[in-house]
């Protein structure tokens, strides 16, 4: 039970729901950037929601199957083909031993999730199969897929063909993308006007956007309230005494370009953060392409929890539709 990597695409990694519990040692949570898409793909092929699957950004891989399997592709809009025959997204299909799974060009979104019945069975590291390349943990030898890799699969024939997530339950970011932000952390270091500008301005996803973080450009620079820098922080007004960075927190080194930290981010450092993107919107970030126009929208905790509840209900509907 395995598949062979004929072409890895641009950057394809094994991901599950992540590796919690080691953040205090600098080991990030990792896992799928779009967890909703990962869960949905797994459910369609009959896996546990958190089984390991492939996350592929911008360009699909070419995979040759060594055994029969059920496959589902979710997330970005990038049509799949089995031996050249097009297969619908968000819908389970069969691949036979010896067949080749390939992909057309990306039409929308940024990352596809390929779940395969049985789940990817590479050895877990610290309780997860998620690939964390900087720390050489998880996945195939701690790195993204490479040509010629034979990737093992777990047991399980998989679900029948044709199981599908109803169209109304599939989620992609709108245009312009809106990311809801709860101000906090070191928000108090910036001027009120700067805080307002941050939410008023239109930003664009910068080319430096990856699993560690998404950088944004185009808004006005952040200005800081005048103060004497605390001992140990460093001389730049954007510096703090090094502390932890929450998943989703927004740092603005030098006050110029906001970076939203994502699954493989550094666990801490010496830059101030002005708040965090709410948990309900983190999956969307993984589907933003460079140059996507983006607005940050100020919300309070009540709105953040309401949005989180909506996401949970959406997932429950997907579970119900596929049960």
């Amino acid at each position: 039970m395995a598949f062979k990597v004929v072409n890895p695409g641009l950057l394809s990694t094994v991901q599950d729901l992540g590796r919690p519990g080691y953040f205090h040692l600098g080991i990030p949570i990792s896992g799928a950037m779009d967890r909703f898409a990962l869960r949905a793909a797994n459910l369609m092929v009959g896996n546990d929601e958190g089984a390991a699957a492939l996350e592929c950004v911008f360009l699909g891989p070419q995979l040759e199957f060594e055994s029969d399997a059920t496959v589902a592709v979710t997330g970005a809009d990038m049509p799949a083909r089995v031996d050249g025959e097009e297969k619908p997204g968000w819908t389970a299909f069969k691949v036979r031993a010896g067949q080749l799974l390939t992909f057309d060009y990306l039409k929308a979104g940024a990352r596809i999730y390929i779940a395969i019945s049985g789940g990817i069975a590479t050895p877990p590291a610290l309780g997860s199969r998620s690939t964390y390349p900087i720390g050489a943990l998880g996945g195939v030898e701690g790195r993204p897929l490479a040509v010629g890799d034979i990737v093992p699969l777990g047991e399980g024939g998989g679900a029948a063909e044709g199981r599908s997530v109803p169209e109304a339950l599939r989620r992609m970011p709108g245009a312009p993308a809106e990311l809801r932000v709860l101000p906090g952390l070191y928000w108090r270091l910036i001027t009120e006007q700067s805080g307002q500008n941050f939410f008023d301005d239109e930003w664009k996803v910068a080319p430096e956007a990856d699993r560690m973080g998404y950088r944004f450009r185009g808004g006005r620079p952040i200005e800081f309230e005048a103060r004497e820098q605390p001992f140990g922080a460093g001389s730049d007004p954007s510096n703090i005494v090094d502390g932890c960075y929450p998943y989703g927190s927004i740092q603005v080194p030098g006050g110029t370009e906001p970076i939203v930290l994502h699954r493989d981010a550094v666990s801490g450092g010496g830059y101030f953060t002005l708040g965090a993107v709410i948990s309900a919107d983190m999956d969307f970030i993984g589907q933003l392409q460079p140059h996507t126009a983006t607005r940050f929208v100020r919300v309070d905790m009540a709105a953040a929890l309401e949005a989180r509840k909506e996401r949970r209900l959406l997932l429950e509907k997907v579970r119900a539709a596929l049960s």
Partner: peptide, 18 residues
């Protein structure tokens, strides 16, 4: 004490290092 989104609480004992 401050929230970092809806999943974190960040607690700063002091602004400066000691």
């Amino acid at each position: 004490y401050t929230f970092g989104g809806d999943e974190h609480i960040f607690v700063e004992m002091d602004e400066e290092m000691s």
